[in-house]
Structures are given as C-alpha cells and as structure tokens.
Design a protein around this nucleic acid. Structure first.
Lengths: 106, 106
DNA sequence: TAAATTAGCAACCAAATCGTTGCATATTCA
DNA sequence: TGAATATGCAACGATTTGGTTGCTAATTTA
C-alpha cells in the first residue's frame, strides 16, 4: 500500500484517532473495542475502523481473548516520526550560528 | 476548518508533499511553483494544490514577486509536532525504570 | 506592441476517508 | 439450551483528496 512513515502520519492526522490512541496510552490495561466506543460519540464500528488504521500503522497491538479484542497502544512506534523530524530539528532547536554552520557546510 | 496539529500532520502525511517540503528546505533560496513542478512528475497545478495545503499548515510561506510566487519552507513549524510527540517520548527514550516510575506515579 | 512566461481559477474524475446501518457469528452466562 | 454480549463483515453515502485539462489574466521580454 504505502510507506510506513506515511501510514503513521495519516493514522495520527485524524483527531479522533489521536484521542483513541491517547486513551489507550493512558489506560492502565488494554481496552476492548466496546470499552473504547463507550468513551466516544461514535458507533462501535466506527471505532473498529479507526483501530484498524492504527493497527496497520503499528501504533496499536490487537490480541483476541475469547469474544473480546484487546487493544494496546504501542507509543514507541512514534519514534519513527521523531526520526523523520530529526532532519529538521536543527531549524528550531539550535542556536543561530549552528544553523549557519549547517547551511555553509551544505 | 480543523485544528492546527491535524493540519500539519495531514500536510506531511502525503509523501509527495514531504518531498516538495524537503526540496524547499534544502533549496538555497525560495523556489517558484514552476521550478518545483520541473522537479516532479506532476503538472504545475498539482504542485499548486500541494503548496496550498502546505501553506495552510504554515509549513510554507508564499510571497509574490512580479508574476512569480516564491515558496519558502518554514521547518520551524514542525516544532508543533515535536511538542505533541513529547507526551509519548518517554516510552522509547528513557530507561525502563523511568517508565515504571511514570506509570506508578501516573 | 506582440510573444512568451508564470500563475490562478473552475470543472472534472477516480479513489480514499469517515462515518453510518443491517445482519451474521462467536463466546459467555444464567 | 437460550439470552446476552462482543465483534466482524458488507454495503452505502457524503465529503475529501490527489490529480488532471482547459481557459484566462498578469507580467516580462524582444
């Protein structure tokens, strides 16, 4: 389909998915689809779709237990984004002379 | 329309736009729409649309000079993303006991 | 002034996105 | 076993997305 970094960016570009992801991160344990849906003004199927997108981006891990589907956040996958960001970090994180040094060195 | 962070994420979620953005960052000076288009296998109008998206996300600054539209990258806007990431950074950046400390305190 | 260059705008198109409803299936509980 | 629970799958619909073509307007250049 598409490259991993695009998948991750698209997954978290949607505010609802960011909320779901955050809910999973702060949850003390894995949550079921229904548990997540109860926290949002959306149908269970809507949540299922968002979870699928997050799982395809490796931001959520799913594991079936009986009739339940347990969702667990994998925030460490966001390191891929930080990796991408690192190329541009120098433009706001460092002192001006560091930037000028970078530009002159090419 | 939508929140700033979603705008930025959506803007850079597209691989073509990331390429355009990168081309602008590494360019020694601002580039015109036509100059950008010549580097990509796309029509000028296609590029114009991408530039519009990047501008709306404040990742690119436009300024008209005669008949030309000069495009300049504003990579410092990516700091907003890093800000968002910082909430989750601890999950891959710190030692395990730091994480456990966070969870027990949280 | 006439031709070439740079760009904008509008319309169109196919595909993806974000959500819904309806129904079927599997598991658990009484 | 029968009812309730948790979920999946498919179809639908409105909107957005990523791109195109065609035409017009403004600026520069010869």
């Amino acid at each position: 389909m598409q490259d991993r970094i695009s998948q991750i960016f698209k997954a978290i570009a949607d505010p609802t998915r960011r909320e779901i992801f955050h809910a999973l991160v702060v949850a003390s344990s894995a949550l079921t689809i229904s548990q997540i849906a109860s926290q949002f003004d959306m149908t269970r199927q809507g949540v299922t779709k968002h979870i699928k997108t997050l799982e395809e981006a490796s931001l959520v891990h799913l594991h079936t237990k009986g009739r339940e589907r347990l969702c667990q956040a994998k925030p460490e996958r966001l390191a891929d984004i930080q990796q991408w960001l690192s190329t541009y970090e120098q433009f706001w994180n460092t002192k001006l002379d560091d930037l000028e040094h970078y530009l002159s060195e090419g």
